[in-house]
Write a protein that binds this DNA or RNA. Structure first.
Length: 639
DNA sequence: ATAGGGTTAG
């Protein structure tokens, strides 16, 4: 029977013959490999022993062993995990697993399909391994985010006496990065040095990224500076690192350096730069970056588009943000959330809610971040009932369990509206861990509404969590000051002096002629300082005529009224506004960024300036945007 | 035969 079948095969043309043999092997493979229901029935009918078949092949053309390349290309064209398994079977029965190229390719495909257990078994079963084998299995573990697994493989690699190289080390370094494990990262860095691979661009870039994401920006920069050749990826990593650690100014400085050099930027790099612009909030820079994008014909994909929405909205230009949003063909949950957040901190609560509705209509489901944006939008626009409803709907309608961030939004929402008892009840009802942000929101609300007793409770919790953060003491002292409890203010100030805590200084910066100027309170360091104070004096007279009354309750020092007025009149945002008035043409909008929240008096001041000078003033403070126009602020004095 | 960097809140 067997003989008969074999002899009949001799008449097949070669191609058909080989195809048939291929199928025969596959059936045996299917039974030994993972359960694979997709094995064609045809194979079972031809289930003969392929070993015998090969041995008995009569003529040389037919006995030629299959080329490993044959399997490799079959694997290359495989589309699904089941196809890979099918080919795996054929590889086994043809004795091709001994071939490293074939085995590695198989391993690689399992890793790519995240079939990690299969990949791992195959890896363990391989009698011979080379550098590729190790990198591929490490890559597999890192792809599924199993960092401990990566370390285990790396240990095995060392134990087997294999040399760590420029392929496998980046995986291990990235595992440290993703776990934000600087101690492990430094150990691996030691290994890198021992094997003399510090100067390799892949290893170096991975180390820069690792240090940056572990918050060691100086070490990252040192690695970066020491690298002999920096490619675009390394640059991108470094630009992002600065933006991430709160120094977007340095990010964009690096971007300028890249532009000076002959580096051609790609989409990844541009997204990073756009995102740095968003963090910096510098409109002129944003325009330059946009021009670069247009000139170099970057297409507006979801990620780049979303980054641009964020950039324009954080530069104070909600219209341009919306232009980009409308032009984007594809939108995902991130794009929608970004647009909702944008409307939120510009105080356009209704538009935020409309955008949320449009998002639902488009069939995109909200995630936890969407709700943070949405709830803040409600909070900033005083849409209390809507906010309460959305909060409830998270779990009821979308099965999203509110986390501490959502509770924080609710405390902010209720607290600002003066519903402090409800806010406090909500905090009490929480079963999860309460963080600083939550208590800060409550404390902030207590400050607005002068609720000293609750403020003390919130501040105590805050100080327990972070005893060395000066901001918490300052907040409490603000509450006391507002209530006129100067003895308590002094007590806090003494406490801070004893613990050597210093208040974070408030600063405002402004972009004029593509240069960024920074002002602190009472600043006299600006080259045009004389003109600025002159303008301020002049301005104050006009404002007072128009009805402006300085509100010295915002001066927290316990000094004479006259001194209070002087301190108040030299707040950093007022200096920046005065500078803009002397240094820019009369129709130019004035855009400021502050690191803290705008003070109540500066808010009133800005409204009057916008009325008296006919200038539009846009202030981005730590919380949101204020658009001042013709004496009115977009926040409706509610912030 | 193997390798990397990008978007949202706080």
């Amino acid at each position: 029977m067997l003989k008969l079948k074999l002899s009949s095969k001799q008449h097949f043309p070669l191609a058909t013959h080989e195809k048939l043999r291929f199928f025969c092997s596959a059936s045996t493979a299917a039974s030994m490999a993972d359960t694979d229901s997709t094995t064609p029935k045809l194979m079972e009918q031809n289930s003969i022993n392929p070993q015998i078949h090969i041995q008995q092949k009569p003529d040389p053309p037919f006995s030629r062993p299959l080329d490993p390349q044959h399997f490799v290309s079959a694997l290359l064209h495989s589309k699904s995990i089941s196809q890979v398994k099918e080919i795996h079977g054929k590889v086994v029965v043809n004795g091709m697993l001994q071939n490293l190229v074939v085995a590695n390719k198989l391993l690689y495909l399992y890793a790519q399909h995240r079939a990690l257990s299969t990949a791992y078994l195959l890896f363990c079963d391989m009698k011979e391994r080379n550098s590729v084998t190790w990198s591929v299995i490490l890559g597999g573990f890192s792809k599924v985010g199993d960092f401990i697994g990566s370390f285990g493989i790396f240990r095995k690699l060392i134990q087997c006496g294999v040399r760590p190289d420029n392929y496998n080390l980046p995986f291990v370094i990235r595992a440290c990065r993703d776990m934000a494990e600087i101690t492990s990262g430094k150990i691996v860095h030691g290994v890198v040095v021992r094997y003399g691979l510090e100067l390799n661009r892949f290893v170096g870039a991975a180390l820069v990224d690792m240090y940056a994401k572990c918050g060691e920006i100086e070490d990252a920069r040192k690695m970066f500076d020491d690298m002999p050749s920096r490619d675009l990826v390394t640059w991108t990593v470094m630009v992002r690192a600065y933006a991430e650690c709160g120094n977007p100014y340095e990010s964009l400085f690096l971007f300028d350096l890249m532009m000076e050099g002959s580096v051609v930027l790609d989409k990844f790099a541009m997204v990073t730069v756009v995102s740095a612009c968003a963090k910096l909030g510098a409109m002129n820079k944003a325009t330059l970056v946009h021009d670069y994008l247009c000139k170099n014909k970057f297409s507006l994909d979801v990620v780049l588009g979303t980054a641009m929405i964020d950039m324009y909205s954080k530069c104070g230009c909600i219209e341009s943000a919306n232009d980009v949003f409308v032009r984007m063909k594809e939108k995902n949950v991130v794009s929608w959330s970004t647009m909702i957040a944008a409307y939120g901190y510009h105080g356009h609560g209704r538009e935020a809610l409309d955008t949320f509705d449009m998002m639902l209509s488009s069939g995109t489901l909200p995630n936890a971040i969407t709700f943070v944006s949405l709830l803040y939008a409600c909070s900033h626009s005083g849409l209390i009932e809507e906010g309460v409803r959305f909060f409830a709907s998270m779990w009821d309608e979308y099965s999203l369990r509110p986390d501490v961030k959502h509770y924080t939004c609710m405390v902010d929402l209720l607290g600002r509206a003066g519903r402090l008892d409800e806010a406090f009840e909500l905090v009490e009802s929480m079963t999860m861990k309460k963080d600083e942000g939550l208590w800060c929101a409550l404390l902030g609300a207590c400050r607005i509404h002068g609720h000293v007793e609750m403020a003390e409770r919130a501040a105590n919790s805050l100080i327990q969590l972070q005893p060395h953060n000066p901001g918490h003491y300052v907040l409490l002292s603000n509450v006391y000051a507002k209530a006129g409890r100067w003895k308590d203010v002094a007590k806090i100030r003494n406490l801070m002096t004893q613990s050597r805590l210093k208040k974070v200084p408030g600063w405002t910066w402004i972009e004029v002629d593509n240069k960024i100027y920074q002002f602190s309170s009472g600043d006299e360091t600006h080259p045009r300082s004389k003109e600025i104070y002159g303008m301020l004096k002049n301005l104050n007279e006009k404002l007072v005529q128009a009805g402006y009354v300085p509100d010295t309750s915002f001066v927290l020092q316990d000094v004479d009224e006259e001194v209070k007025v002087r301190i108040l009149s030299a707040h950093s945002e007022k200096l920046a506004i005065a500078f803009a008035l002397v240094a820019t043409p009369s129709e130019t909008p004035i855009r400021l960024t502050k690191n803290l929240r705008i003070c109540g008096d500066c808010h009133t001041f800005s409204k009057f300036v916008s009325a008296v000078t006919q200038r539009v003033i846009v202030v981005r403070d730590a919380n949101r945007f204020h658009h001042f126009k013709e004496g009115v602020c977009s926040c409706g004095d509610y912030w």
